[in-house]
Amino acid sequence: MTTTTGSREPVVAVRDLTKRYGDRTAVAGVSFDIEYGETFALLGPNGAGKSTTIEILEGYRRRTGGEARVLGVDPGRGGVDWKARLGIVLQSSAEAGSVPVREQLAHFASFYPRPRNVDATLEAVGLTEAARTRVRALSGGQRRRLDVALGIVGRPELLFLDEPTTGFDPEARRRFWDLIRSLKAEGTTILLTTHYLDEAAELSDRAAVIVGGRLVDIGRIDTIGSPADRIPVVRWQDADGRHEERTEQPGCLVARIVADGGEPTGLEVVRPSLEDVYLGLIGQHTLEEQLA
């Protein structure tokens, strides 16, 4: 069962995935593949269908149309051997308050055929100090790190991370990113949803953007969005006030500004971040939807 790593079959394969609730369509024909060892980010505004898609792939929800294969298995029919190869970090929950952290993790580790060392896992998520703390006494960020620990303790081949760093302080996020990089280095395939686009840019190889249940773009992080959205912006100030110009040749523009009026104040050349590109994409598709 655990030999798919050798084959080049995608770890996740989704074709025309659809989910309807009555006459409301939550996911309207989404298709993508995630290759072995890849970190794939699913981006989109709240209610776009990200969580529905990920929960179908985790086996929690039934699709109403299309096809899906996760580790070669239909996620609607996956048994415990299939689940043993997955790691799931759900959006936050509030259970098992009275159980100490280490005991909770050791208990979950016992479900898996070849779990990670419990103390090493606690160390990796930075909860060694809190090992004896009861779950309910953890801070929001510590609680989230325990969720991550529970998701990785079974040594998953495929890890689902649904908004994993919500409530983390900047240092904890950096540590978390390091942890994800080390899991990646071990060959773990990761499906990530996040609201932090710097996180997606930092961690993922490829991303897909979902708006209104539809996939509006998919590709490497640096190719997401229309070329127009990625045109750099040059900003500067002179006697006439502030200026801003988008251009494919920012170097030439800067040279011209200097030639015309000498050294400008507040000169900036900004390449749109994933966030700018993403917001451009969302805005454009939301507008199209409203017009349609």
Partner: peptide, 17 residues
Amino acid sequence: GERSDGTLKRLGGSPLP
């Protein structure tokens, strides 16, 4: 209670029979 606080959801995503 376990069904509404997420205990069962987490167990259901694990290989616990």
